[in-house]
Design a protein around this nucleic acid. Structure first.
Lengths: 195, 195
DNA sequence: GACAAACTGCCTACCAGTAGGTAGGCGGAA
DNA sequence: TTCCGCCTACCTACTGGTAGGCAGTTTGTC
């Protein structure tokens, strides 16, 4: 039986896991080549340059994230549940070391030396995640589930920063549970009393 | 007039600014060489391997940070002021693009592929920053300046994550002000009513 | 339906440039 | 006289990237 995922997909999968480990400069075509048993030149056939490879990678990641977040809003009517499910996703990712870090958070650190084409795509991710969080917060506020002391956009930024910082701490301390320890109380604070 | 800083110090200075830009894999001996007008081999004379160089760098960074945080506690008797001054430090750093990022936060992202000797030193930084924050929070709580809903150690972790996440967001959006926007309300939340 | 042309996906072989690192020499200060 | 800081010259391994070939499939045309 032939493998079900296409070669370009496999390349992006491996590249993503490598970026999550060591960032843009932390992997090479040779690494991918070794991982999926294909020659370096063949990778260049699919993605001529490294910048194009990572751009495609972030594009795919953004699409997946958008789709995931959108389906979250359809699946759960309760904004509090939507938010919690989003956080649970990362919680299990980090615990299972699946992709224990957000690709874009990783790349954001290296922003200053990324190719422009990649940089702009990373910014897109941050923008749309912040927007999603803000709209969930807004909805929750209107339903009296959340009581915010700031505009939803600002609280969204605070929440996003907490999530990324918590990923960093979990990694620094090699303690997956730390992610939850940090993030859970942040969410609890949003809840309006009596919910 | 001779330059006042010794060559090893200059090397570490340049290396630090390069790490802050692009992480461990984001710089080379050649980069440092070009920046301070010395040959690559001469850098190896002072720091035989890259791992040793970065280890020395993080050691120095940790010492400076410890000294800075310690003097902060001596300079201000009020824990709220201590905390605020710490945050102001990063705020101005990021605004002036001085070192607009914490070296250890940067390295923490690459944790999984760092040489062991560096990894352990990064962990030390996280540990001692968390301890400092926790002790400031504890002191503030005893003086009724802060009202914490969690143990000071946990709130310290939350605060630290916020700071690092805010650095990441400021960088991703190329917006230095965002750091303050994110961090200030986090601190405000700590304050006991009537202060 | 036959047949050449074009296109795939991958290969081998190669390139210039750069990575981290080494060997050994040389001038000046201790 | 030895040590220090820096040098030139060099090494091997690896970086991202290219040129060109070669089977197998698709395509257009008669």
């Amino acid at each position: 039986m032939k493998s079900m995922t296409s070669t370009p997909e496999k390349i992006l999968d491996v590249a993503q896991s490598l970026i999550v480990k060591g960032g843009y400069n932390g992997f090479s075509y040779a690494d991918i080549s070794a991982a999926i048993g294909i020659r370096k030149a063949s990778i260049h056939h699919h993605f001529p340059t490294k910048a194009e490879l990572v751009s495609a990678l972030v594009d795919r990641y953004n699409q997946q994230a958008d789709a995931g977040l959108k389906s979250l809003r359809q699946q759960f009517s309760n904004p509090a549940e939507q938010l919690q499910t989003y956080l649970n996703y990362w919680q299990t990712c980090i615990r299972d070391a699946a992709p224990p870090f957000c690709v874009c958070a990783m790349l954001a650190g290296e922003m200053q030396m990324l190719p422009e084409e990649v940089e702009s795509r990373v910014r897109v991710h941050f923008r749309s995640l912040a927007n999603w969080l803000a709209s969930v917060l807004q909805a929750g506020m209107e339903l009296d589930l959340f009581r915010l002391d700031k505009r939803p956009e600002e609280v969204a930024q605070m929440l996003m920063a907490s999530v990324h910082g918590a990923m960093l701490s979990a990694r620094a301390f090699s303690d997956p549970e730390l992610f939850t320890t940090i993030v859970t109380p942040q969410v609890a604070r949003l809840r309006a009393p009596g919910c």
